[in-house]
Design a binder for these strands. Sequence first.
DNA 1: GCAATGTGCAGCTTCCAGGTTGCATGTCGG
DNA 2: CCGACATGCAACCTGGAAGCTGCACATTGC
Lengths: 117, 117
Amino acid sequence: MSPRTERPRRKAATLSASAPVFAALGDATRLRLVATLCAGGALSIAQLTAGTTITRQAVTKHLQVLADAGLVHDLRQGRERLWEFTPARLDEARQALDAISAQWGEALVRLQRFVES
Amino acid sequence: MSPRTERPRRKAATLSASAPVFAALGDATRLRLVATLCAGGALSIAQLTAGTTITRQAVTKHLQVLADAGLVHDLRQGRERLWEFTPARLDEARQALDAISAQWGEALVRLQRFVES
DNA sequence: GCAATGTGCAGCTTCCAGGTTGCATGTCGG
DNA sequence: CCGACATGCAACCTGGAAGCTGCACATTGC
């Protein structure tokens, strides 16, 4: 009920909820991991470590951070642990940026009208 | 030329370049500052500090981080220092997220075709 | 069963981000 | 000129992030 009064609140909630996602994407290594998983499907930790200069343990920690942010999830398969991209949270973050841009556009319009009056 | 071979490289460059922007947005306080500046136009440090529980110096540091990421810029006006939102970098970040989502979509299509064959 | 491979867990450094306090500087109003 | 306000600068503290090493555990293949 009353979706009209709930809409601004949902925007703000979406914003602060997206902070961890942005923080997770803020590291160059993690951003690279996300891009790799996006392009390559499900990969094991060893495979993800192969392309980098850091240790397997470091990669594991980064994957854990990404999982906490809801950007990736793991699939256990035998002795391997495959990681896969999860698009949901990233879409939310994208919508948050869209909301900010839209808000900025509205602010410009308001400013223009104020100057004209 | 060969725009087909150059396109993925440009994508990767945009991605790694967006890491600092995401890192800047990764803090809840900074995300709130960006949203406030988006809605309110140009505000002084004292004004931006008014709504928070932290010190003016802390706000100054956050603004400096946002400025380094290219998300805001300052306008000196008398004894005040007004800060304003800069939409360019945020749009780049948005496009980077779009690129990732698109890449994921393509990966799904490839996977589907592979399974079907 | 045994070796190889893939991973998990714990502990340990190092470094920086976030925040504060204290004081100095510049600017506006009268 | 002087007080009030807005900001700048520097030093300092603290917690957590990012990385490593070392060892233990599970799974596969022969």
